[in-house]
């Protein structure tokens, strides 16, 4: 799980152009949206693209994104649950 979280950190920083964020600054349990990383609605759509591009996972209902993208850990757990790590 930890290895997957570390990998995700790098992918998120790259995909979302978080140039000023260092991987070690992202707490796997803090919220990705609002406070925490401060991502917005376009970032949420990009995370859907990221899952498809790197893990072959298609989120059919974007509303599911809300629970999946709560934190890095929930995201990693979701990828595991899809058997795609």
């Amino acid at each position: 799980m930890d290895a997957l979280i570390e990998k995700l950190k790098g992918q998120i920083i790259e995909q979302l152009n978080l140039a000023e964020v260092k991987p070690e600054e992202i707490n796997p349990d803090s919220p990705l949206f609002g406070e925490g990383l401060g991502l917005d609605s376009i970032d949420a759509l990009e995370l859907i693209v990221l899952l498809e591009k790197h893990y072959g996972i298609k989120i059919q209902d974007p509303k599911d994104g809300k629970t999946i993208f709560q934190s890095l850990r929930t995201m990693a757990e979701y990828i595991k649950s899809q058997g795609k790590s």
């Binding site: 152009n17 970032d43 759509l45 990009e46 693209v49 498809e52 591009k53």
Partner: peptide, 8 residues
């Protein structure tokens, strides 16, 4: 992979 962040 059409990217919303580019499209905008």
């Amino acid at each position: 992979f059409p990217s919303p962040a580019i499209f905008v």
